[in-house]
Structure formats: C-alpha cells, structure tokens
C-alpha cells in the first residue's frame, strides 16, 4: 500500500529532514509514526501527500510511483488520500456541511451524491446535528471530527493524520483516536504522526520511531519515545 525505498529529503536551506528511510505499510494497517519535534515525521506526511518531493529515493502508494505523477494529476492523487491536520485547516467562512461537501465538490461529484454522502459522514463523526455551525462555533475536538469527515467523504483507501490530537485536551484526544480506530476497522489504512506517547502505548498498534530523520525502530508494540 505505502512503500518508501531509500527516501531522503533535504530542504533548500540544507537541512536534512529524513535520511534513507525504508518503510512498508500494508493495506488495512494502523501505524503510528512517532518522534520529537523536528525528527522528520511531518516531512514524511508531506512527502506522501506530494506536497514535497524527495531528494532521493522512491515512494510507492497503491502500487504507483508517486514521483511519476505530473503536477496536473496531483489533485486526482490527493483525492485518494484523506488528510487530517493538527490545526484542523477548515474553511472558516463555511459551515460544517459545506466544509465536508467541499471535498466532494472538488471531485465534481453530483449534488445528489453530495446530499447523500455528507450527512452519512457527519453521522459517522457524531456531528449530524451541528451541520450548520461554523468552525469557530465548535470545540477543538468537534473541529477535528469535521476534518476527519472531510478526509473520509471521498472514501480514500489511506488516511494520513498529522498530529491530530496536538491541539486537543485529553478527553477529546481519546475521542479522536477511537474514531480513527473505528475508521481503520472499516478497512481504511491509517497513518498517524504524533508525539503523544500515552495514546500510542494505549492503542497497541504498530509504531515507527524516527529520530533525526532516521527510522530507529519499527515494532508492533509501543516503544519509548527516544
């Protein structure tokens, strides 16, 4: 499903973000990528989203070398990967319904499909009753659930979450993790970047630890942060 072969990324300023990373994530897996700030974990998410291009190496997603995807075809590629961000990144001037519907509108889905699908997703994340609220009228946890509904509405096979609980209190963080687990149970491959080791340990999933841009451990049981 996701395969990184000898991937390195050096930023223009000469900062080496990740070095010679090899990684294989299977379909339906739930994987945590952990590490301190600046360890390179967010860079990995950006590489998978094709927001950045690797300096060296090859990234395969769904059997395709994403290095070969032309700029024109990047949008189509991204529609098959759901993304959740730490700061939610919702469209502030649109309500909950419109934020989720927007992800379908970009695929030129019909009005009928949108009307059918969006309420389903809002029900899944428990926000059906708040479909008319604006993001600023919601709590952090609720905003993150809208972001998850938006990421899933096009039924991607992969969900990438970059510090999805970073801006949330403990209760909301657990709510979001339970939701991500449920989504994974339905068959979506979930990759979560986090530094919240309490959650990682409790979830009991595969954990990849990155330190200074290098994978230092990859285990089925939670490991130490360093």
């Amino acid at each position: 499903m996701i395969k990184l072969e000898h991937v390195s990324k050096t930023y223009e300023a000469g900062v080496q973000a990740i070095t010679d990373v090899n990684l294989h994530i299977l379909p339906g897996e739930f994987v945590f990528i952990v590490g301190k700030s600046g360890s390179g974990k967010s860079t990995m998410i950006k590489l998978l989203q094709k927001e950045l291009a690797p300096t060296h190496g090859k990234i395969m997603v769904n059997g395709r070398d994403i290095g070969n995807i032309s700029r024109k075809n990047i949008p189509t590629y991204r529609r098959n990967i759901g993304v959740v961000f730490q700061n939610f990144r919702l469209l502030q001037d649109r309500n909950v319904y419109e934020n989720v519907a927007f992800a379908m509108r970009v695929t030129e889905a019909s009005k009928r499909e949108i009307k059918k699908k969006v309420p389903q997703m809002l029900s899944l994340v428990g926000l059906a009753a708040k479909y008319r609220s604006l993001p600023r009228q919601l709590s952090g946890g609720e905003q993150q659930r809208v972001a998850i509904a938006r990421a899933l509405v096009n039924e991607p096979k992969i969900l990438l979450a970059d510090e999805p609980t970073g801006n949330l209190d403990n209760h909301n963080a657990w709510e979001i993790m339970r939701l991500l687990d449920e989504i994974n149970q339905r068959g979506t491959t979930v990759v979560v970047v986090t530094h919240n080791m309490d959650i990682v340990k409790a979830m009991n999933k595969r954990v990849i630890t990155i330190k200074k841009g290098v994978i230092v451990s990859d285990e089925e049981e939670p490991g130490d942060e360093d």
Binding site: Q49, P75, R78, R79, V83, R89, L90, L91, A103
Partner: peptide, 10 residues
C-alpha cells in the same frame, strides 16, 4: 484557504 483546497485535491 487556497492551500487547504489544493491539499484536499482541488
């Protein structure tokens, strides 16, 4: 807003 649109596949 533009960046969000692009990241979700617009």
């Amino acid at each position: 807003e533009i960046a969000i649109m692009k990241l979700i596949g617009a």
